[in-house]
Design a protein around this nucleic acid. Sequence first.
DNA 1: CACGAGACCTGTTCGC
DNA 2: TGCGAACAGGTCTCGT
Length: 268
Amino acid sequence: MPELPEVETFARNLHPALIGKTILASELLWQRTLASPSKKAFTHRIKSQRISAIGRRAKYLVLTLTDYVLLMHLRMSGDVLAVLGGYQKGKHDRLILHLSEDTKLVFSDPRKFGRIWLVRDPDEVLRGLGPEPLGDEFTAEWLVENLHTRSRQLKMLLMDQSFIAGLGNIYTDEILHAARLHPMTKSDAISNLQAGHLWQAIRIVLEDGIRRSGASIDWVYRGGDFQNHFRVYGRSEQPCPVCGTAIRKITVGQRGTHYCPTCQPLEA
DNA sequence: CACGAGACCTGTTCGC
DNA sequence: TGCGAACAGGTCTCGT
């Protein structure tokens, strides 16, 4: 479910309810949700840890504790909520952390794809991720150079977390439409000018997503408004807002892919 | 190296 | 109305 803007929204929203609180106990309700360490070590280590910061790296939520870092990846259907006061367990709750001041941090995940790590060094998990698309490291020059070091379909490359970290299926489709590039364009076939447009589109679309608190679709994520501003995602057969051509849906890298055949032609 | 298929999972929606 | 198929925001691993 969540891509960079949704996870960023989670981090911002959870901040006030969690900062400074202490973890008193943990309840792991689905074993596989805990990627590392063992349940026994996790239960022992997390106890008495104080939450000093909450942030985001790529699609990971990063909670800095006294001696450890707690990483959460929501994958397709994960949800995290901070509850003050009484709490009625939900059907899909996978991990509940009982905090001080009668607060609970609940990780809920219907599809059970989400994962949680408790580590000394977050790099154990985050190593291998590409640059943050909204960070200083990610420049237009960097993008131009690196697009040309391989020959991949643009959509697949943008979704490769080791290339750029944080883009998923929705934002990639929106970005490629904004950049007027066909999703199957080979990365080494695009011009410097096109790469510049792509760089701008990445920044603009992600910032727009964050400003609108992410996109809410189906029953999973709620609270965002970006779904009302999609230009191509989920709009197959509907008119392109730029030129009126019917949006087409194809499969690229086994993912549903939406694009405008007029605005995003595949150049030979 | 690049890409497709299959796994991991459950819930919702679509088509007959 | 009912029921199976298809599909869903992600990532990993294996085979070609």
